[in-house]
Design a binder for these strands. Sequence first.
DNA 1: GGATCATGTCTCCCCATTCA
DNA 2: TGAATGGGGAGACATGATCC
Length: 382
Amino acid sequence: MILCFNCDAETKEVMDALLRTGQYTDFASAIACAIRNLQVLHEEMASKGAVVLRGVEDAKPSADREDSRASVPARARQSQQAPKPRAATSTQAETRVDTAPDIFTLAALPEDAPMLGPHPEGEWSSGAEVPLSRWLFGQYNRLLPAKANCRALASLLREMPDGVEIKFAATRISEQAVKLCAYLQQLDQLHGFGRDDALATAFPAPGRSSKGVLRYANHFVARADASGRVSGLLTGLKLMSHFSKGGKILLLLTEAGWEFARLPSPVFDAQGSAGPQKFSEEEAEFLLGHIKANVPPEEYAYSSILQAVAAGADTPDSLGSALAEKTPKEAGRDLSNGFIASQRSGAVSRMGDIGLLARAREGVRVRYVATARGEAYLGDRE
DNA sequence: GGATCATGTCTCCCCATTCA
DNA sequence: TGAATGGGGAGACATGATCC
């Protein structure tokens, strides 16, 4: 895109000086950076009434500083040393976020329900046996982003009550998700969460390639293909609905998406004291009930995996083989082992988030174990 | 400290579609 | 009709955890 604007000699000299620092490749990158900074200033001023610039030392997590260690529980102190944070970068080192960004908090939601979209018609009826290739895409590997994005979409609907344009929503929410990731990484470090439990998994890490942000936008918020077909985690879980108007695709929450967004979150609403739970009991029960009633592919995935595990297919390889053998085949399609592993791993991780299945590590090997909730889920179905 | 395993994330290739 | 583009999917690579 090409934009033109008038600029006086003094401003031109400032831009030349910025380019001479070597930190910007051209005028466009310097201007883009300036506009982003202006946006941050506006948001900070709107929400907090002031902007505080801090040095890198000040920006380190307080738990790392000697004077605040006494207030950190012993278990958490030990665990701070155990897990290594994801690839540290200069940007990450300077990022300190005490709370979830406003857009993900309960306070950002409209008081009354926004206009909601109809429950999307699905291809599969309740109780259908869904081929592995038609389950939710395995790279939708966590459910916490679904909560975050329902909140964020509800927040955007306050400003745009007639529907949020899909590209705007994807861009805006994924940018905010980078800040959320920084906050969640801090919580992971504080609580000593390893890979299986990390809250920040699936969110785009700050300071890394913009492709991670794009991936988050496409996979976890929404994207439309050339034919206008919308995909993504929220669509797959029927928490979001969409419609076309004036050549644009607009997004709305479904009733389930709105209800899910409204439930208090132990992660996003804790204001710096978030505990180790991803979902409250109420959130987990709500999501599970919604999936059982309204999302046949996910319901079938959960029950197939729980049945296979109960029958002894409780390792990654044996579970993959069992699923490939026992789930229906899609005509004219052979699945590679890699794709089966991706589908299996994604579904198992989502089940872990909702408390149906746990990974038990025995040395380097993993066994899948149904939790009490998982056994109850299977019992209810049979 | 190297090897191994499981999983998460990123990149690239192939193919279908669109455009000139 | 060939070039350009975009998306889906598979594989590559990175990371964390553990064993020996």
